[in-house]
């Protein structure tokens, strides 16, 4: 016993070279994940600024980053209103896409005949570029908001539909048998088996759809063109372009990109919260 004890002590303290290396690599990775992109952004902004100064590029061709930032603050009332409009269209389109996509997916899994009849049209709707449908939509739909919403919805709903359909169909086979043996109704099978199985797939589709809804609403607004009430960021960019107000174009562009990132981050967080208890994708693993 007396001999064994010091030996055990020694064992717990031994960290071999490989472990040390791994720990160092982990630490480096953790810091690098934040520090490296930050350095890249700072360098980019710095050289952007320097290139403008060195080449004496006028601000109506390429504004310096400082000016863009200043415009963002000075034009905030205009930009913020436009952002709200774009955001409103995007979120509404995403909501309708979720309802439509999940609704159709459920319908498809309930009846093979409905799926066979309508799935090809969902694909056609998806593969036809929105820019080419949008002008038609704006001819037939009077309300501009409704037209924008329709365009954004067409782009956003397909990933939700196809992912949710896949998810509803990939419920574990043995669990399906089990439900059948225990006499589950169609509704119980959907509610307790298929919908939970589809959740990770749906959330994957939702993250794609979030970005696409934003793209859809921006593209549709470019097509819709005319200003007036209810003009979003895309129209702000168009209008600023006509007036050679390049800094405002950049500021609006920045807001669109930031909105996209925020939507993605929000949906990723939602996905993590819903899956963290049980799904492989959200589990932390020890190496």
């Amino acid at each position: 016993m007396t001999l064994a004890e010091p030996a055990e002590q020694a064992v717990t303290q031994i960290v071999d070279a490989e472990e040390l290396r791994r720990a160092r690599a982990r630490r480096r990775e953790k810091i690098g994940k934040w520090v490296l992109p930050t350095i890249v952004v700072i360098l980019t902004l710095y050289f952007w600024d320097r290139i403008c100064v060195w080449n004496e590029i006028p601000h109506y061709i390429l504004p310096r980053p400082g000016l863009v930032f200043q415009t963002l603050i000075n034009d905030w009332p205009i930009l913020f209103d436009a952002l709200l409009v774009t955001l409103q269209i995007t979120l509404m389109a995403l909501t309708v896409a979720v309802l439509g996509g999940v609704g159709l997916a459920v319908l498809f899994t309930q009846s093979k005949f409905i799926e066979m009849s309508f799935f090809p049209y969902a694909v056609i709707l998806q593969v036809t570029p929105i820019v080419s449908i949008a002008p038609l939509i704006f001819i037939y739909v009077d309300s501009k908001i409704a037209g924008l919403l329709l365009c954004a919805w067409i782009v956003a709903f397909f990933p939700i539909l196809s992912n949710t359909t896949l998810g509803l169909n990939s419920a574990d086979h043995n669990l399906r048998d089990l439900f059948k043996i225990y006499g589950a109704t169609r509704w119980q099978r959907l509610r307790f088996l298929q919908l939970p199985s589809a959740l990770p797939y749906f959330l994957g589709g939702l993250r794609i759809a979030g970005g696409l809804a934003l793209i859809g609403s921006v593209v549709a607004e470019y097509v819709a063109g005319t200003g007036g009430i209810g003009s979003g960021l895309a129209f702000t960019i168009l209008e600023a372009g006509y007036r050679l107000n390049i800094p405002r174009m950049f500021a609006a562009l920045f807001l669109i990109a930031a909105t996209g990132v925020a939507i993605f981050a929000g949906l990723s967080f939602l996905s993590h919260m819903l899956l963290r208890k049980w799904h492989e994708s959200a589990l932390k693993r020890e190496t």
């Binding site: 574990d172 043995n174 669990l175 048998d177 089990l178 439900f179 225990y182 006499g183 589950a184 119980q188 307790f192 088996l193 939970p196 959740l199 208890k277 049980w278 799904h279």
Partner: peptide, 22 residues
Amino acid sequence: FQEPTLMPWATVAQNVWLPFRL
């Protein structure tokens, strides 16, 4: 079955509850 065939999104108690729940 040969596989445990549990619902991964449900707790142990919820899994055992299933036959009654249905």
